[in-house]
């Protein structure tokens, strides 16, 4: 199975991709972010590899050079067995990197998860969110198959904020006919929420420098 995680910059794609990879057997996570210089899948490489997740990152991820190359190993992963998780860069600019794998992806079972954080300024209403989603679809030549409500204000997230986000995601779903795959967030918060949709509890892996050890 191939899971493609896409969305607006800062919607929480990487955290969702990392959590998904850690929850699946025989998983390979592919850092396909050609846009963002910091806060990448590569930050969680150690944790992922120690949990037997194969990690494919651009050769120069988290180095001092800005070289948005896509790793050649992606092809080998796509022709092999197991679960593949694509952590795609933000917006259409990031999704364009998916295009070259289109024919490989379409040969397999796949889902395209569009992550929505209603607290992000450019996806605060349904029209803007749908427009952005269509741009990502055009750039990747893939259709979104699931919506994920990942509405959050980081440490200031409340259940009301998640619920406001759900209203937006419902509108997007109603207008496009795309089903809602999950509501994601920190476990403690999700436990306080009533929802008809599956809950996707997240453990966060991308931290600030002041949260780090030696």
């Amino acid at each position: 199975m191939i899971y493609i995680i896409c969305g607006h910059y800062g919607s929480g794609k990487t955290e969702i991709a990392i959590n998904l990879a850690l929850s699946l057997d025989n998983a390979t996570i592919i850092d396909l972010d050609i846009v963002n210089p910091y806060f990448r899948t590569a930050d969680a490489k150690e944790k992922l590899e120690s949990s037997n997740v194969r990690v494919i990152t651009p050769q120069f991820a988290n180095t001092n050079i800005d070289m948005p190359t896509v790793p050649a190993e992606v092809f080998s992963a796509l022709t092999g067995e197991g679960n593949i998780i694509f952590d795609v860069g933000g917006d259409d600019a990031g999704a364009i990197a998916l295009g070259q794998y289109n024919r490989f992806i379409k040969e397999k079972k796949y889902e395209v998860q569009f992550v929505i954080n209603a607290c992000r300024p450019m996806t605060e209403n349904a029209d803007d969110t749908i427009k952005l989603m269509r741009e990502i679809e055009a750039a990747s030549r893939l259709k979104v198959t699931k919506l994920i409500n990942n509405t959050n204000l980081k440490s200031e997230t409340t259940k009301e904020i998640i619920s406001d986000g759900q209203d937006l995601v419902n509108k997007v779903s109603d207008a496009t006919g795309i089903p809602i795959g999950a509501v994601s967030g920190k476990k403690e918060l999700l436990d306080t929420i009533k929802t008809d949709f599956p809950k996707l509890p997240l453990e966060l892996h991308l931290d600030f420098p002041w949260e780090r050890g030696v």
């Binding site: 910059y9 800062g10 954080n117 209603a118 607290c119 992000r120 300024p121 605060e124 959050n152 204000l153 980081k154 200031e156 904020i161 406001d164």
Partner: peptide
């Protein structure tokens, strides 16, 4: 919403 989640660079531009 009163608060939004922003990257420093975006916040500078919006401010």
């Amino acid at each position: 919403m009163d608060k939004v989640l922003m990257k420093g660079n975006e916040a500078i531009a919006e401010a």
